[in-house]
Design a binder for these strands. Structure first.
Lengths: 239, 239
DNA sequence: ACCTGAACACCGTTCAAGT
DNA sequence: ACCTGAACACCGTTCAAGT
């Protein structure tokens, strides 16, 4: 309210990005608008455009900030543990920022930070003796899993704060499900040891992630040891 | 312009969804707004809300329309060819609608059509003798690949209509890349047989998709044959 | 150099009213 | 039953102007 008391440190790119990350942590990615971010910084919306080209650039910067939290590579590890360590470190960072997965999936530009991370993982395979050819295909096979997340295949886990469904509702849901989607119900029940109230609460995502990652890395190692090459192969793998 | 000449068939859910799919095919997902879709149908925006609860429901319906284009399962196939056939059929449908991948990734609700498709793929593994437990983990490992796409790991392919970069720009890009991201450049060059102009035009996505799919299915088959169970395993796979 | 004010061309969705 | 009109509370971004 005083004339000069409200003066604040001048904006800069870093302060804008840090505020955006903080805002996304609080209200989710959909809640991050240029206008709301400006308000959070006590500034008029247009002031942001001096530090960030447009909203896409803002999102790129936010993803870069998450990448900045990844642990550095550990050169003492062999290729398999090396890739695992980096990817699981990426996973920890991504889980710290629930919006990060959605933001990463939405990016189509590859920033220097993104390229540097991909280069580092690629280099780990090469240092482990993988051919250029096999490394290329394996990077594609890993896909977004190098960022530490797998897609939500089934429903989002139910809000843990939500009250548990009443037993009769569970029964009704199970009955309907059992009729229409017996196989989905079966594997969902298996994941919760038959505890119906757990269905829809999601399963052990960490285990599923590690399972898929190791399935891919082990398959890759097998191809590597056998000297597999896509030039020799007519059809894809035949692992 | 005549009073009655402009009368059109009454809207219904199907006509709304078909128009939305057509609009997305033409202008991309970002171009599909309730207002623009209404205009396309010669109707006021609010008229849509009688047939579709809100924009999320519209997107759900559009994804369901794509799923409706998948080929039915072929019961004569064994589990591996059966899953491959369904997933490659999904891929053909998704490639017909360039917006579909983005739409599928953005959905958090699982519609009956989505659940029915997942149930069908799950059932194919079960019919092939896979345990409930292994089927569960394998479905997670496949992840979004059951929809026939893998994530864009590297850049989007350059617009094929765009003019090719001038040779000196290619040289400059390559030089900069070679210095900062040598490993990414290396595998990118391998994918285009050293043709620099092809870098950034993307690689053979069909091959990469088939590679990853078969890597996963072959690994899954190996675990199946060996009677692997997550209950017995302390750590994930050890394929 | 950095920020502001006003404006433009959009959004999704509500409500009460029309036929 | 189905559609409309007007309004609300938002968006991202431009341009010319202020300090």
């Amino acid at each position: 309210m005083t004339e000069e008391g409200a003066r604040r440190a001048p904006l800069n790119r870093d302060r804008v990005l840090r505020a955006a990350v903080e805002l996304a942590d609080e209200v989710g990615l959909a809640g991050v608008s240029m206008r709301r971010l400006a308000q959070q910084l006590g500034v008029v919306p247009m002031a942001l455009y001096k530090h960030v080209a447009d909203k896409d650039a803002l999102l790129d910067g936010m993803v870069d900030a998450v990448i900045g939290e990844f642990d550095p590579p550990d050169p003492a590890l062999d290729w398999q543990d090396g890739v695992r360590q980096r990817v699981l470190s990426a996973r920890r960072a991504v889980l710290r920022h629930p919006w990060a997965r959605q933001a990463i999936e939405s990016r189509t530009r590859r920033t220097p930070a993104v390229l540097a991370y991909m280069d580092s993982v690629t280099g780990t395979f090469r240092a482990g003796g993988f051919s250029v050819d096999l490394t290329h295909h394996v990077m594609h096979a890993l896909g977004n899993r190098i960022w530490g997340f797998s897609p939500e295949l089934f429903d989002e886990p139910r809000d843990p704060g939500a009250p548990p469904l009443p037993p009769e509702a569970q029964q009704a849901m199970a009955a309907e499900f059992a009729e229409r989607y017996p196989h989905v119900l079966e594997i969902a029940l298996a994941a919760t040891q038959g505890d119906l109230s757990g269905v829809g609460r999601g399963c052990d995502e960490d285990f599923e992630f590690a399972f898929a990652l190791d399935l891919l890395l082990d398959g890759a190692g097998r191809l590597h040891r056998r000297g597999w090459s896509s030039r020799a192969a007519s059809a894809p793998p035949a692992v």
